[in-house]
Amino acid sequence: MAIVADHLGLSWTELARELNFSVDEINQIRVENPNSLISQSFMLLKKWVTRDGKNATTDALTSVLTKINRIDIVTLLE
């Protein structure tokens, strides 16, 4: 997760939308982690794993990252 969080940057909100997080949930992550995109990205991934449990797999994440054109991160995960 740390590799993904380190590289997402501003794309974390796009990833959040693709992972079916609501606008309110995205804003809450922003408010709770106001000074760091990496912290926002990491919190998103943590919430995703908590919410989706065993369905929050590397394959699922890779699929969504591909959908938002972040092949650079997919390559890092391989």
Rank of each mutant, 00 (worst) to 15 (best):
L45Y: 00
K47G: 07
T50N: 09
L61M: 08
L65V: 03
A56W: 06
N33F: 11
K54Y: 10
V4L: 06
A56P: 07
I71T: 13
D72P: 06
I68M: 08
K67H: 08
W48S: 01
S11Y: 05
T57L: 02
T75W: 09
L10R: 13
M43P: 01
I73W: 02
S41T: 08
K47H: 11
A60Q: 13
N33H: 13
I29A: 03
R30C: 11
L15E: 03
E25Y: 02
E78S: 11
I3S: 06
M43H: 14
E14L: 07
K46Q: 15
I38Q: 10
D52H: 05
L77K: 04
N27H: 12
R30Q: 09
E18N: 15
V4S: 03
L37M: 13
R51T: 00
A16T: 02
E14M: 09
F21H: 02
N69Y: 04
L65P: 04
K54G: 14
W48T: 01
Q28R: 12
L76V: 14
K54I: 15
S39G: 12
F42G: 15
W12V: 03
I68G: 01
T75Y: 11
T62L: 12
L37R: 05
I68A: 01
L61Y: 00
L44P: 01
N27K: 11
D59L: 10
Q40N: 00
R70C: 02
N33G: 04
R17C: 11
W48R: 00
M1T: 02
N20M: 11
L8E: 00
S39C: 13
I68E: 00
V4A: 08
N33W: 09
S63M: 12
N35Y: 07
K54L: 12
R70A: 01
I71D: 15
L10Q: 14
N55M: 12
V49D: 06
S36D: 15
I73A: 04
T66L: 11
L10N: 10
T62P: 11
M43G: 14
M43V: 12
N35H: 08
G53C: 05
T50I: 09
I71K: 14
T58Y: 14
L19M: 07
I71S: 12
N69G: 15
A60R: 11
R51D: 04
D59K: 14
A56T: 05
T57R: 05
W12Q: 05
V49F: 10
V4F: 02
V74D: 00
V64E: 13
W12C: 00
L65N: 06
D72S: 02
L65A: 00
L37Y: 10
S41F: 02
H7S: 07
A2L: 10
L8I: 09
Q40C: 10
N69P: 02
F21Q: 04
M43F: 08
T66V: 14
L37W: 06
L37T: 13
I38A: 13
L19T: 01
V4I: 09
T75D: 10
A56C: 08
R17N: 15
L37I: 13
K54V: 14
F21D: 00
D59E: 11
Q28S: 11
I73P: 02
T58V: 14
N69D: 09
V4G: 01
D6A: 08
S41M: 02
S36H: 07
I26P: 01
N35R: 10
R30Y: 12
G9Y: 01
L76K: 15
V31I: 13
I3C: 08
I26W: 01
V23C: 08
S63W: 06
A5I: 03
V23T: 13
H7W: 02
N33T: 11
V31L: 15
L77F: 05
E25M: 03
L65R: 01
N20K: 09
N33R: 10
W48P: 01
V49H: 09
M1K: 06
L61P: 01
D72L: 03
R30H: 05
I3G: 05
A16N: 02
V74N: 03
E25Q: 08
L10E: 14
L45R: 01
L45E: 02
D24M: 06
I73E: 00
I3W: 08
S11D: 15
T62I: 06
F42I: 13
M43S: 14
A5Y: 03
L44C: 10
Q28A: 14
S39A: 14
I29T: 03
W12M: 02
A5Q: 04
L15S: 03
L44A: 06
Q28K: 10
T66N: 11
E25G: 02
Q28P: 04
V74A: 08
G9K: 05
D6Y: 07
I68D: 02
K67R: 11
V31Y: 14
G9E: 08
E25K: 02
V49L: 12
S11A: 07
S11W: 00
E18M: 07
H7D: 02
I3K: 08
R70Q: 01
T57D: 11
T13R: 07
D24K: 09
G9D: 05
V23F: 10
S22F: 04
V64G: 12
F42D: 15
T75R: 13
E18I: 03
E14H: 10
P34C: 04
A60L: 12
N55E: 11
T13A: 10
N20L: 09
S41P: 00
D72R: 02
N55L: 13
R51Y: 03
N69H: 07
Q40R: 06
L37H: 11
G9H: 04
E14R: 08
A56K: 09
L15A: 09
D72T: 01
T75M: 13
L19G: 00
T13P: 15
T13L: 11
N20F: 09
I3D: 05
Q28H: 09
T13M: 12
I38N: 15
R17K: 15
D52F: 03
E14V: 13
L37S: 10
F21L: 03
T58S: 15
A16C: 00
T57H: 09
V74Y: 05
V31W: 10
N27E: 09
N55W: 10
Q40Y: 04
K54D: 08
I3E: 07
V31H: 15
L10Y: 11
G53E: 11
T66I: 11
P34R: 08
T58M: 15
D52M: 03
R70N: 10
V49W: 07
S63Y: 13
R17Y: 12
A56N: 05
L77Q: 02
I3A: 08
E32G: 09
N33L: 03
A56M: 05
A2P: 09
N35S: 09
S39I: 05
L44M: 12
D59S: 10
L45I: 07
S36L: 00
E18K: 05
Q28Y: 07
K54S: 14
L45V: 04
W12I: 03
M43C: 15
T50R: 11
E25R: 00
E78W: 04
N35L: 04
S22Y: 04
M43W: 09
T62M: 15
G53V: 04
N55Q: 14
D24W: 06
I3L: 13
R17I: 06
R17D: 09
S11C: 07
A56H: 07
L15Q: 03
R30W: 06
K47Q: 09
V31E: 10
S39K: 13
V74C: 09
T75C: 11
I71V: 14
V23A: 10
L76A: 15
E32M: 11
P34F: 06
T57S: 10
E32K: 06
I71G: 15
P34G: 07
D52K: 07
I38R: 15
Q28F: 06
F21M: 05
S63H: 12
K47M: 13
E18W: 02
L44G: 01
E32R: 10
D59Q: 14
T13N: 07
D59R: 12
A2G: 15
L10C: 13
N35C: 08
N69R: 08
V64T: 11
I38M: 14
S36C: 09
E78H: 13
N69I: 04
T75L: 14
D6L: 07
I3F: 14
I71Y: 15
R30V: 09
L37C: 10
P34H: 08
